[in-house]
Amino acid sequence: MSAITEVPKATEAREHVTALYQAHALGLVKLAVLMVGDQRTAEDIVQDAFLGLYRRWPALQDREKAFGYIHASVLNGCRMIYRGKYRRNRYSPEEPAPAESAEATAILGETHREVLAALRQLPARQREAVVLRYYLDMTENQAAKTMGVSRGTVKSTTSRGIAALARILKEES
């Protein structure tokens, strides 16, 4: 029987991180698109999250937590877009703030466009809670764990977000 030879660490990291990307990136980009509006920025955020994981891989001790790290990194990247702190590595810093892609929204129905526009008017935390609860169908506990806040905070933030959204939609109708 052959003896074990260690796979070089860079190769191992690449294989693991690429496999995670294959399995989860599309879903994460969808989530980020809802948070930040345009797909290009969403892809940047997700790429950077995986790049961060790749860089940290050699020191990662519990690899079962890798997906949790990626998920949190993506949400954090989305929040930073709204705080103006996100380093846009791939595009000029002079680029305007991301907006909902005109091409993408053009083929959505009017009703959906209104809702997405209203969603973008919410404060980042409210939008995050609403998206986690109603796009991903997370429970309050799951959303709390993902956002790093208490269940009560999720409940109140979601409630305020939905109320604000309903108000915006009513005002615009």
Binding site: V33, A42, L51, A104, H112, V131, L165
Partner: peptide, 22 residues
């Protein structure tokens, strides 16, 4: 309405670029 709109928008994302690692 949020469910319907977010899922419709997410469904438009069908293709993303490959991972670019150093």
């Amino acid at each position: 309405r949020v469910r319907a709109a977010t899922r419709a928008r997410a469904a438009q994302v069908t293709d993303i670029r490959p991972l670019d690692l150093p």
